[in-house]
Structure formats: C-alpha cells, structure tokens
Design a protein around this nucleic acid. Structure first.
Lengths: 190, 190, 190, 190
DNA sequence: GATGAATGAGGCTTCATTCAT
DNA sequence: TATGAATGAAGCCTCATTCAT
C-alpha cells in the first residue's frame, strides 16, 4: 500500500471516529480499529504525532468542503448571488457529508495550523467586493464576515446536535436574513 | 476553611485554568496547583467526580452571566429593546469577565446537565412575543433563535481568540444587523 | 458519650457494614455514615488503626457468639451431647444473628489477633474428653477438630450466600453425620 | 513475547502474589514487580481490567486443579471409590500445588464468573448416584454435598495456614469420616 | 471529645509513542 | 512497511490518617 493511500485511509478512519464518538473519545486505538489496522503503531509511523493527524483531518475535511462549495459558486454573477451560493452550499454540504461536517466542528478547536482565519479573510474580501459593486450597503466588512461565518457555524452546530433540524427552512430563513443584513435597501418581497 | 468556600475556590481555579489552557489541558493537577492545594485528592474530596466539577464550573459561569445580563434587560419596555439589551449585555460580559466567557465556551460541550437548550427556548419565546406585539416581521422563531444565538456565540468565540477585536464596533454592527433581520419594515436611518 | 459506648457504637456499625457490603467495600466513610458520625476522624480517634477496629469487630462478634453458644452447652451431661449442642448452637446463632455471622466470615481472614486457633484447641480438647469417657471412637482429635469446625464453617458460609437454605434440615443431617463420624459403634436408629 | 505467553506469565505472577500476600495486598504493582514488568500499564494492556485478571487467575487454577483431579477419578468403578478419589486428589493437589491452592481460596470470593456452584451440583449428583446404586444410605444429597465440600475446603484452608499440617493423617481420617457418613451400614474394620 | 477539611500515598486505567521483529 | 507488545507518563479516584478548631 502506498504511503499516501495509507495516510488517506487513516485520516478517513479518524474522521469517522471523531464524527461518531466526538474528539475527546477519539483515541489511536479507536481509529486503528475503524481503519482495520492491527496496530496503533502504524498511525505513529505515518504521522509524526497526534497533532499532525488532527491537522490532516482538518485539512482533508476542508478540502472536500472547498470542492463541494466551489461547485455552487461558479454559477453566479453577482456578489450577492455568490454569497447566497456560499450559504446554500454550506448547508447542503452538511446534508451530503454529515460526518465530515460533524468532524470539522469537533476538530476545529484542536487544530494547530494557522490558516483558520483564511475563511474569514475570504469572506471579508467578498463582502468588500459587494460593497464596491454597489450591491451591499455600508458596513464593516470584517465584522460582517464574523457574523456570516458565525451564522454558518451556528446552524451547522445545531444541525450536528439535532439531526431532525429542518435544513430547508433554515436555508430559506438564512438567505432572507443575510439579504436583509447586507442589501443596500431592503427589497420588499414581490 | 468552609466547604462552600473551598468549592468556590476550586471552581474559580478551574475556570481560570480552562480559560488559560483550554478544556483538554485542564487536569486536576493544574487546578490544584492554581488553587494552591497540596493534592488533587482534595478536589475529589469536595466534588464527587470530574463531571460534577465541570457542571459546577458551567453553572457558576452561567450564574454570573445571568446576573450580569439581568441588569441590562430590566430597562427596556419593547421586545426589540430587550433583544438589543440582551446582545449588548453579552458583549459587555465578554469584556468584563473575559476568562469566564472563554471558560464557558470551552466547557459547554462537556457539560452533562440538561438545560443547554433553555437558552434557545427563551430566545425563541422572546422572538415570538415580538411577533405578537407587531414589532417583528414574520419568520420562524425557532430558526431565528438559532441565528441570534449563533451570532452571539460566534462573536464571543472570535473575541476569545482575538483579544484585539473591537467589541464596540461589533456591538454597533450586530445591533444593526439584528434590527434589519427582525424588523417588520426596514427603517431607513434618520 | 463515654469512650466505651462510642467504641461499641462504631464496632456495631462496622459489623453492619461488613455484613451488608462485604469486607472489601467497607470503608471508614461507610462505617461513619452507618453510625451516624459526621467524620471518619472519630473512628481514627477511638481506634489506633483500621486493624484495631477489625480485630475489635472480630472480638465483639466472637463474644456474642460465645455467649449464645454457652447457653446451649450447659444443659448436656455427656460429651456427645455437648458436641451436639455446640453444633446446634452454631446453626441457631446464624438464624438469630445473621449479620454477625456474615460479618464474622468476612472479617476472619483479615484479623491479626492470634487466638484464631483457640476454637480449634477447645474442640480438640472436647473430642479427647469424649474419647477418654469412652463415648467416642479412636481418631486423631486434632484432625477431627478440623473436620467439625470445617463443617460448621462450611454450613455457615453456605447459609450466608444462600438465604433460602433450610437450616433445620442442615441441623438434622449434620447431627447424624457427626454422630456417625465420632461414635464408638454406629447406633442404628431406633 | 507472544500475547498468550505474557498473559500466562502475568496470571502466574498474580497467583504467586495472591498466595504470598493475600488478595487484599495484591496490587498491579506487586504483580508487575514479580513478573519483571516495567509498568502496571502492561497488565492493563493485556487484561481489560482487574476483574478479568482475577477471573483468569481463578480459571487457570481451576484448570490445573481439574486436570489433576481427573487423573484420580478414572480408576475407580464404584461411586464410593470415586468419592474417595476426589477427596484424595484434593489433598494431594494441595501438596503438589500449594500456592495455587492458597490462591484459589483467596481469590474465590472475588470472582465474578458464575459457575461457582457447579462444584456443589456435581457433588450432589455423585452422591445421588451412590444412593441409587445402593452404596450410600439415605440422606439429603444437597446437604451432604455441602458437608463434603465444607470438609474439603476446611482442610485446605487449614493446610494453607499451617504448613506443618500432616496431610497424610488428614487424608486417612477424612476417608474414614466420609465413609462412616455415607455408607449404608457401618463396616466394622477387619 | 467531636468535627470535617486536608493530606498524601497508592490504586487502576488510558494513552500516545517507541521498538524489536 | 507492518505488527503488536512494551513503555512510562499522566489522569482520576479512594482511602486511612492527621490536625486545627
């Protein structure tokens, strides 16, 4: 088995484990079991330490997430449309890759990698672009980025806890909210 | 030293420790050291187990938080005002009791006590009241409650990570956002 | 409260505790609770150490046991009769003072006091007396003493485990057995 | 070193330790020291918990015991002969495997495995068979089984305490006693 | 004498990591 | 590479005992 394949397999098992048991209960033994490995030693062999594995898990989930979201963004030509697409994509990702999403939320606080702020920077840039284009009203883009991501995170966290949450409803309400929050003038429906 | 005082001291040390090192790195030994205790046995003597201490930490922070927020809510007579006061109070609490807030966010996922959803229920009720009174537009109150609390949590989380965050700016922007999100008709400024 | 009364109270609580929870689960805290004491310190104050308490428990149960058995022995004028009375007394003691008996069996292995062999010596002496008087056949009295006490202990142990054991049946069968084991010639019934 | 070998080694060390120090003083540290292990963690590595080790110790001793006793039972064709063989085997086992016997008596009260009563059931069955075959007199077989096993246990316990006990003498006397206790009619010697 | 908090040793267990094979 | 036993640190918890009040 190739090095890369092994790492991927281990990372995959780690994601499953974290999603299922939560970060605290995720030990090398659990991961090894789920990966069908006969020894935790193999994990240490392929990863310098637990931290590297955790970071890799985070990166892998983020990669999948980015791929998924990307597919939604391409189709819109306005900034507001892109923002809507981003939000929709996030909620759809939750449905399509529940365990990845759950793992993401569990693992995030334990990630060492700097670059967690990249999300924020990109969002702030997008918002600024919308302001330049005249679609968005005046607001502090960095602050609004915090808000938008907070909404995303909060909904995902809630969905992670409550499997019965109506994500369609959430999506509609969220789009309405964000539009009201950002639009230059409020558009009365119809 | 009286039992109650000791418990309070230990809870205090635990809060400090969690705020400083994060939940994962918070061991009885760390807490004992910070509290000036001679052994971890003393913690077990005063608390039935780690879970009881964790729950107590959560309860204590929540108590302080509730007291603090209460002081802000009394003065408003409209529901919208109460909602604003709630948000303001939360951000001010972060400033006044930073370590408590950080500890709260760290500890929340590990609390056993049921009643974590109470926050959500109360917020949803408040929002419904605003709808009945005509102050708020039509929206799904439960979903909007998720949004409002997500915003609150997201801002606090951000503030916990980034000590330099401008909370005044956040406050202003947040109030604006929430008003736009909930108001029956958008009020153009001025 | 007088010193002696306190000690007696603690010993009594210890007996209850051991009978109820078994030796391994008997801690000072359990004993203190059962005695209505508010501190385990009081136990350490009245007893030099756990060993002294254990020994005292053993001695106390033995004292009661001896008193009880004594009442049965007086009435017989033959050695065989005394032996029978001893056995009957033991089984009756089990019924009358179940928890004391159970405590006795639990505590015996942990007693430091030498004098556990006294039982054996007395039994051997009794048996020798029966041999001298011509009631008993020839056998090694020390070995037979082991047997008789083993039978006694085994029945008590069984009764301790199985509350439904028919002690009347046991008594009849035991007397028959011991008579056959010791009698000079087997007496056909009737 | 193979898993099975390590487990066997640990069980062996545990048997030694229990035989030497008694159950109460048998800690993982003691066992590890005696087994030449570098840490108690290794014991937990090979056994799920203390209970599993205790049960394994019990099972191992019982296995050896059963093997040993088996060799004695085959040769007899009468039930009385089988009963005698059983008793002889038990006493010989004590001599041949002293520490195992002592460990057995120490560990028995702490074993979780159900099947401790199997001994009793088998003995009662054997006795009933002897009654059906006409070798044994009328008695309650369950009660007599208690007696026979009590005698066995009592002698072993005594032998465990007193290394100087004359087991040959015990054997002869025990056989005589049991024969008198069970035989249809007392056979006068010679 | 009595209280109850404090002590500190010791117990079992989990875990990431190392290492010989 | 892979295995899986071994390591050793660290964690939580229990307990008898001590001590100031």
């Amino acid at each position: 088995m190739t090095e890369q394949a092994r790492r991927a397999q281990i990372v995959g098992a780690a994601i499953e484990t974290v999603a299922e048991l939560g970060y605290a209960a995720t030990s090398f033994k659990q991961i090894a079991t789920r990966a069908g490995l006969s020894s935790t030693g193999l994990i240490s062999y392929h990863f310098k330490g637990k931290q590297e594995l955790v970071d890799e898990v985070y990166a892998e989930v983020l990669r999948r997430y980015a791929d998924f979201v990307m597919g939604f963004l391409d189709r819109s030509d306005t900034v507001a449309g892109e923002l809507r697409a981003f939000l929709v994509a996030n909620l759809r990702f939750m449905r399509a890759h529940r365990s990845h999403t759950v793992a993401l939320m569990q693992v995030r606080p334990h990630v060492s990698v700097r670059g967690r702020d990249e999300d924020h920077r990109r969002m702030a840039d997008l918002l600024r672009e919308g302001q330049r284009s005249g679609e968005f009203r005046e607001f502090d883009a960095d602050t609004m980025a915090i808000f938008v991501l907070a909404l995303r995170n909060g909904v995902l966290a809630r969905a992670a806890e409550d499997e019965a949450l109506d994500l369609d409803l959430c999506e509609r309400e969220l789009l309405t909210l964000v539009e009201r929050a950002t639009a230059r003038a409020h558009q009365p429906p119809g």
